[in-house]
């Protein structure tokens, strides 16, 4: 018996830690485990993947998991992201857990995928910890729960161990994370896992690129400022929103935006470029008259 879990998240969600929590908890229950992250050159906010294998025998398999039994998706915006492609290799037996606050939109599109389960871990985290950005304990606990192999008490022990090992020493923060883990654990059922042999590492979809003339298909190395074609707006979990009735056009949000996504109009009112805003919320934190508020990203504010 081997269970293969694949975690998808964005840098900062704590996805690597989630995979470690699942691995450590399974190890404490006497299983053999592997856990490891995979990320490219990108950073906090960019998609990344982590993997956990749990087995009652020796694990000979190596490398990434292309046919997961369980997929954990920490941010619903990743479902449509071609770089992340979290559903790749999942079949109708795969259990898919999605962290989302828009269950209606998600379940419509994914109903045919079979065993999809939605959870609002960000909300649980916000209500207990007061923050919803790092959700490693929630995602790790969700993975442990659906395997049906791991006790709640073991998950809680694994959360303490892993959060301590990444340098969190505040007992209060660890206790709250344990609470979040417990709540997520209890809110999910355990499933019967239908495991299967690992298939080949080939992509399930082959993308055929049509021929284009070199002038189109070759990167233009003398292009100036073309990075604007990369949209980093999906990195956000929360978005800053300017209240123009209050704004006194003081320039502070404009000056301190690291990415330069806030511009000023003729009347010196600031405007946020949501296609590129990464959601760091420095503008919200620094606005001296609190004319900027924070909203959780949801389908209603997608343009």
């Amino acid at each position: 018996m081997m269970i293969r879990i694949r975690f998808h998240g964005r840098g900062g969600h704590g996805i690597k830690t989630a995979s470690r929590i699942a691995g450590t908890a399974a190890s404490m229950e006497g299983f053999n485990v592997q856990d490891f992250p995979l990320y490219g050159a990108e950073r906090r906010g960019a998609p990344l993947t982590a993997y956990t294998r749990i087995s009652d025998g020796t694990i000979f398999e190596r490398g990434i998991i292309s046919s997961p039994d369980i997929v954990i998706i920490a941010d619903d915006s990743l479902i449509e992201d071609p770089m992340a492609d979290p559903l790749n290799g999942a079949d109708t037996n795969t259990i898919i857990i999605i962290n989302t606050n828009r269950p209606h939109d998600i379940s419509e599109g994914l109903a045919a995928r079979g065993r999809v389960f939605l959870i609002d871990a960000t909300e649980i985290s916000m209500s207990v910890i007061g923050k919803g950005s790092a959700i490693s304990a929630a995602m790790g606990a969700a993975a442990c729960r659906v395997t049906g192999l791991i006790n709640k008490a073991t998950v809680e022990k694994a959360v303490v161990k892993e959060l301590t090992s990444i340098g969190i020493s505040s007992e209060e923060i660890i206790r709250k994370n344990v609470e979040v883990a417990g709540t997520c654990f209890d809110s999910l059922p355990s499933f019967e896992i239908i495991t299967r042999a690992e298939t080949s590492q080939l992509l399930t979809k082959t993308i055929v690129l049509p021929y284009e003339a070199p002038a189109i298909s070759t990167p233009n190395v003398i292009a100036s400022g073309n990075i604007i074609e990369r949209k980093t707006g999906k990195w956000r979990t929360f978005r800053p929103v300017i209240n123009y009735d209050k704004c006194n056009h003081c320039w502070i949000c404009f000056v301190w935006c690291p990415d330069g996504v806030i511009s000023l109009d003729d009347k010196e009112f600031p405007h946020i470029d949501y296609d590129h805003c990464k959601g760091c919320l420095i503008c919200y934190e620094e606005c001296p008259i609190k004319a900027i508020t924070v909203e959780r990203e949801s389908s209603s504010n997608e343009q």
Binding site: R43, G225, E229, K231, T232, G260, V261, D273, H276, I282
Partner: peptide, 20 residues
Amino acid sequence: LKDLSREEFILPGTTVCGGC
């Protein structure tokens, strides 16, 4: 602050961390 240039020379879309 208002003496600073409003022109941007580094365009957004970079892959460095939010809040860098």
